[in-house]
Amino acid sequence: MKKLLTISALLTLLAAATYYGNTTIASTSQTIQLQGLPPELEGLTISHVSDLHDAEFGEGQEELIKTVKEQQPDLIFLTGDIIDSNRYDLEKSLKAVSGFVEIAPVYYVTGNHEIATGQESEIKSRLSQLGVQALSNELVTVAIEGQSIELLGIEDPLTGASVADVLALHRRSELPRLTLSHRPEVFEDYVSAGEQLVFSGHAHGGQFRIPGIGGLIAPGQGLFPTYTAGIHEKEATQMIVSRGLGNSLFPFRLFNRPEVIKVTITP
């Protein structure tokens, strides 16, 4: 009887931890040094939001909006899959975005789920109406505090253009550059192109994170994937991968709390 009670208590604890780890948001922080960043932009802060997949955090997305607002970002990056192609509900995700645009300028790139719906034009149009700038394989120069930086937005390769092809069209200049691209598994392409700092998602943190090992599985990477969370560095390139917020084919996460990353950039 005692053993049964112990097992029951452990299962209850695991269920509670799983519920908490799927319905609450972790606000994580990273500080990254970016070569060539003007001193005037010391402390430039970005909220990195990825892979919402139609998940909902609080009524009208109030908890998600609150998390981003508390990070006090100068810019907000949405790196794809704000919706899920299996249960397409754009209105739910737009509630979050409508809150984001009141906080800071918002930039967006598509993920594979936007393309899979066949509704990417509608999604971009609705985002544009809210004031979001969708970057469709394009490079823009943004002025902040009188200083210029480049933002490169790469559409998901399901559109037909590979990440490498897009990078070849927009070679590095002398300006500091931040790159938004949904796919982390093509890290070597970013390295070959000399991209400075890439913001990515897609891997959902490996879905189930094994303590001391990392993520279990990720699309495009298979079992025990390399690029599921945190910062990855090689040569002059750094890539920050968000664990994301929602789920798709797998209905829950394990030891892998949804996150919004606060990225602070220094010279």
Rank of each mutant, 00 (worst) to 15 (best):
E59K: 14
G146D: 06
K95P: 05
L127Q: 10
L52E: 10
P38K: 05
V106Y: 01
V97L: 05
V97W: 02
Q119C: 11
S148K: 15
E91R: 13
Q133H: 09
V101C: 00
D54S: 11
I154P: 04
E91F: 07
S93L: 04
N86R: 14
E122L: 14
V132Y: 01
S136A: 15
I103W: 02
D81V: 02
N86A: 13
P39I: 07
D81N: 04
V109M: 07
G153T: 00
I144K: 14
D54K: 00
R87Q: 11
R126D: 02
Q71W: 05
E40N: 06
L130M: 11
S148C: 08
G80H: 00
S125C: 09
I65T: 11
L64T: 14
E138T: 06
A96R: 08
G118Q: 12
I83F: 07
L135D: 10
I46C: 06
E150N: 10
V132K: 00
E145L: 07
T67H: 11
I144A: 08
L139H: 05
G58R: 14
E62F: 05
A134V: 00
V132T: 00
L64R: 03
V101K: 01
E62R: 14
N86D: 12
Q35G: 09
V97D: 03
H53R: 08
Q72C: 13
V106Q: 06
I154R: 00
A116T: 12
G111V: 04
S93A: 12
P105M: 09
N86F: 04
I149M: 09
T67K: 15
A143I: 06
I144N: 04
L34T: 01
I65N: 01
I82K: 09
F57A: 07
L44A: 08
S128H: 10
V97A: 09
I149P: 04
E56N: 14
L127S: 13
E122P: 02
N137C: 12
V106D: 00
D156Q: 04
G99C: 07
E42T: 14
E138C: 06
V68T: 03
E59T: 15
I83W: 06
A116E: 10
L37R: 08
D89S: 08
E91A: 13
T45I: 07
D74N: 05
G36P: 10
